[in-house]
């Protein structure tokens, strides 16, 4: 201890206000994903709307048979699947940014993000199940059509 210590005030080093650096450019990937998926979703959604609401008989054509007809083709199955996944992640990521902005408390942020992840996962899983296990004309054990199936199933067989 030198005598200078008694008179020289100790200057505390200024601490940075932020704690911890980023995880592997996560925010950069998030930013790029939002732009990429946004452009893709524009094409996917507006084509979807055009096919369903404008082409053919327009909005009046939508019934069980119309959906069954669309999902008979793997193109529309994949189309709807991509649209579902992208829209859920795009929207979910947007919600994540809002939670980061507005939820001040750590516990609140964690709770909301857990809820958000659960919602996104549930909807994606349920939606994918519907798209890929969809069968408009289910058969019973003996190979006959189940009661209550649409009338067009008779023609398909």
């Amino acid at each position: 201890m030198s005598t200078a210590d008694a008179t020289t005030p100790v200057v505390e080093p200024l601490r940075p206000i932020r704690s911890g650096r980023s995880r592997n450019h996560a925010e950069q990937w998030s930013w790029l994903f939002m732009r990429g998926s946004g452009v893709l979703l524009l094409v996917l959604i507006f084509t979807h709307l055009f096919i369903n609401l404008f082409s053919g008989d327009g909005v009046n054509q939508i019934d069980f048979a119309f959906v069954a007809g669309k999902w008979a083709s793997p193109v529309w199955k994949i189309w709807d699947f991509v649209m579902l996944v992208l829209a859920m992640i795009h929207g979910g990521n947007g919600m994540r940014l809002l939670i980061n902005d507005y939820a001040r408390e750590t516990w609140m942020r964690k709770t909301l993000k857990t809820l958000l992840t659960a919602c996104v996962a549930t909807i994606v899983v349920l939606g994918s199940l519907v798209i890929f296990t969809f069968d408009p004309c289910p058969l019973d054990a003996s190979g006959d059509l189940l009661p209550g199936v649409p009338t067009f199933c008779e023609d398909v067989r």
Partner: peptide, 12 residues
């Protein structure tokens, strides 16, 4: 640039 790549950086 690495500092601004932080989660509190330009992406906000």
């Amino acid at each position: 640039l690495e500092i601004l790549n932080d989660k509190a950086g330009v992406w906000k």
